[in-house]
């Protein structure tokens, strides 16, 4: 069983190939380059290095969001098109869970964070080897997240390069229970996307057409429009 894993949900880019439960190759970079130009060549390079043709793939796993809207869409579009046209199953895994997986051995709560600008974050709380979601992936303000985490009263490990943006505030609110993960834990690995994908039932190839990113946030224009509709209904 040969898997291709694609992770482009945020600035890092990671592509991996796993064969029969063993990682064969993984590419990882954390440079501000556009995934639109770089992701497809990276997939080609990784497959070429391990001597595989696209048709050799048995399944595809992709980091499905949340994260940068554009980043998530590029990974999903590549994965979706490859899976559909090669007629292979496609599995999507939460981008936050992929990042939390780096710290699955941590004995406590794991809090992955992606910056969502204007003080907002995409986040969740996972726990244990099985990465049980204590708090499901969501979009919130950092202040609201920290207010919620106060009640945990147990060590919480923060992972992700974007944690740095909020670290001062996290420390101020949570004090010693907040633990900063080492920097090498901060990048999401395509190998983890695949590992987590192997733990779920394979969807049918027909399901690929309906695969969509998990933005965890409706588009701003749509939010405003819904608000207007509600106000009009109220009037």
């Amino acid at each position: 069983m040969i898997w291709l894993g694609i992770e482009t949900a945020n600035t890092p880019l990671s592509i991996a190939v796993v064969r029969d439960g063993k990682m064969v190759a993984e590419m990882m970079q954390n440079i501000k380059l556009t995934h639109s130009a770089g992701a497809m060549p990276a997939i080609e390079e990784v497959l070429t290095r391990v001597g595989l043709k696209p048709s050799d793939l048995d399944a595809i796993a992709v980091s499905e969001g949340p994260g940068s809207y554009t980043g998530v869409r590029i990974g999903v579009t590549l994965a979706k098109t490859l899976a559909w046209t090669l007629q292979k199953p496609l599995v999507g895994i939460s981008s936050l869970k992929v990042l939390a997986a780096n710290a699955a051995l941590y004995n406590g709560f794991i809090c992955p964070i992606f910056d969502a600008r204007r003080g907002n974050v995409y986040t969740a709380i996972y726990q244990g080897m099985a990465l049980e979601a204590i708090v499901e992936d969501y979009h919130t303000h950092i202040d609201d997240l920290l207010e919620r985490l106060k009640a945990f009263e147990a060590p919480i490990l923060f992972v992700g390069t974007d944690v740095d943006i909020f670290w001062e505030k996290i420390g101020a609110v949570l004090g010693d229970v907040a633990v900063r993960a080492p920097f090498s834990y901060d990048l999401p690995h395509a190998t983890e996307v695949i590992r987590l994908a192997t733990e779920v039932a394979l969807p049918s190839v027909e399901a690929t057409h309906h695969f969509v990113p998990q933005y965890k946030r409706i588009a701003e224009a749509e939010a405003n429009w819904l608000k207007e509709q509600k106000e009009q209904a109220y009037e």
Binding site: I74, T81, T85
Partner: peptide
């Protein structure tokens, strides 16, 4: 740009696959 990227990445993936 965000709209163009979808067609372009689908085209690249399809071209690569075949």
């Amino acid at each position: 740009v965000g709209a163009l990227l979808i067609g372009i990445n689908a085209a690249k993936a399809f071209a690569f696959a075949h």
